[in-house]
Design a protein around this nucleic acid. Structure first.
Lengths: 349, 349
DNA sequence: CTGAAAGCGCTTACAG
DNA sequence: CTGAAAGCGCTTACAG
């Protein structure tokens, strides 16, 4: 066996200090920009660090300062629609603030969610961003945390204004001249869905006949994957189908297609969230989009603020970020639509 | 100002040791299960730790052991299809092995990808899982890493067998009796797409007329979002449209619908990846699915192995994980299909 | 079986 | 402006 002196792999402040004949404190100060260091020394130290390929030890820094520079992100289900958008926006915002993101998937289970939060805390995150599983109330904890949820949920920090988003869709449909509309939701226990439905209703009431179909209830009766009876609805006069998610809008659209009802010529379909594939549909679907970058920025900003200032408390003050309409499909309800089209711009119907 | 003795928030090994009148070494040994500790002491120490709400400091442990217990995951684009599936599977596999996952989004940019890798290393990850941006060759680094990519890409660690997946689709279509098939890809520079196309071709050649449509090339000529001319293809005899992704399959399906061509009665459409919304389509689409849990397990296992054993090298040996067919749509090519249906089971056409 | 001690790499008062 | 020293909380040989 050769006795090649195994050179230490990672070099540290001491190595730089030794190479330059100064103290580690000076090197640390020069590199961090804190404390007084003679102007002539700073560049020499910086260059040497660079040349030696110095990589600061986060572990040591974290141990010393008590801050890890890492935030935890808890999601109910990374793989289901919308959450990837959230994760991406959060990662960017955190990255821009110098933080890393540790992810945890609660798999839609409250127990797993609690466990995930604990594991994240054990890993030393400085704060937590939590997108709670439906109906979960996050108990207070020892570290700062931000909750992204519906505005109707008590205790949230920031969220899209789902009600206002619903209102955008409602107005859109009213202006197109629709007077018989079916709203399609999945689960009436969801705050987000209720807000969206409520928003749509609010701008439609009085000017259109509105009915709501809850898919889970429908499937409980007719079996999973059963037809939603949309063709029948169409026959009895419904001209617009407004779903609380692009996912359900897609289901509605294909169901109408199967009944040979043309979209958007004969019936209009709208969704929510502008999911990735929404633009792959021909013609693309009108949807409403959350401003994820802004939501993420607000969540991260309030978290960073809490970390740097006081700590151990829930942060934020229920900020509502407006949603925006992505208009892609503007047909009205068939032959009648032309008449109604002229009503555009009246605001209310 | 009151002089309330600010009690230390986090309690450590020393606190437990003091409370029990033993040394920190003994507490450490008892809690970790290493070293010899009298049987009577172990439960007392454990209970005390529990009672005091002890949470070990990862930072200190990491500093001492040189291992952070965190792995970095680099993705080209968290929000686009398929990557959320990967992220979820990786998070689960890592979590099961006691590792946390720090995410980074390379935004499809090679520069950002390199920077992201460096940042992850600076944060002290023990290893890296990289899903490289198309065409990127990952240079060797100082820490263990696993690459998830197409088998055709040199230097990958584990991947789905896209060619074999393509063969599954090809066989499926051949058995359904299709004799005139259009394969739909997006970009011929993608190894994954080429593998899938190649696999489909391999089982179809000699028994069907096969053509390939590359969407990017088509759009370069006719503009983004242009119709793909599928109705014309149908008119000239094409009965099956096999896309390299559910996303393009969706586009194809809606385009056919707009031309009043019924799916699947008149034309069959297949996709790849069994994306989240694939089952929301009526009728649901036949697709082919990667075994993400297995891919993730293999990636994590080889990484953990490299971390515990030798280190600083690329790991793994190009494992190909088979894909599986999700059959949801079994119609053949119209009136002719009945004849061909009887050929089922012949294996080759 | 148990404990005293060293040391991981850093930052931060505190002297000089 | 610069350096010596303490200490963050843990683990790991090494004595006893």
């Amino acid at each position: 066996m050769s006795v090649t002196p195994n050179p230490k792999q990672t070099i540290n402040l001491g190595d730089i200090a030794r190479a330059l004949g100064v103290s580690v404190a000076t090197v640390s100060n020069a590199l961090s920009g804190k404390g007084r260091v003679s102007a002539s020394l700073v560049p020499r130290i910086r260059d040497m660090a660079e040349a030696m390929g110095y990589v600061p030890s986060q572990a040591a820094r974290a141990l010393r300062t008590g801050k890890s520079g890492v935030l935890g992100l808890v999601l109910p289900d990374i793989a289901s629609p919308l959450f990837p958008q959230i994760a991406q926006a959060i990662e960017r915002a955190a990255s821009a603030s110098g933080y890393g993101i540790l992810i945890a998937d609660s798999r839609g289970d409250v127990g797993v969610q609690t466990e995930a939060i604990n594991r994240l805390i054990e890993r030393g995150v400085d704060g937590l961003i939590i997108v709670p599983r439906r109906g979960t109330r996050i108990a207070s904890m020892d570290i700062p945390f931000a909750v992204i949820d519906s505005p109707s949920t008590p205790g949230n920090t920031v969220s899209a204004d789902h009600w206002q988003g619903g209102a955008l869709i409602g107005t859109h449909l009213a202006l197109l001249g629709h007077r018989n509309i079916l709203l399609i939701g999945n689960n009436p226990a969801s705050n987000v869905q209720n807000d969206r439905i409520g928003g749509m209703r609010s701008t439609l009431s009085g000017c259109a006949t509105v009915d709501v179909l809850w898919i889970e209830q429908h499937e409980a009766k007719h079996g999973a994957g059963a037809l939603l009876g949309l063709a029948e609805r169409f026959e009895s006069g419904t001209t617009a189908f407004a779903a609380v998610s692009d996912l359900h809008a897609l289901r509605a659209m294909t169901e109408l297609h199967r009944a040979n009802i043309r979209v958007p010529e004969q019936a209009t379909i709208t969704g929510f969230d502008d999911l990735f594939w929404a633009s792959a549909i021909t013609p693309a679907m009108t949807s409403v989009r959350m401003d994820m970058p802004r939501i993420a920025d607000i969540a991260i900003a309030s978290l960073v603020c809490a970390i740097d200032g006081k700590s151990g408390d829930e942060v934020g003050e229920n900020t509502r970020v407006p949603m925006s309409l992505i208009t892609r499909q503007t047909s009205g309800p068939g032959p009648v639509s032309n008449t109604h089209h002229h009503k555009r711009g009246t605001g209310t119907c």
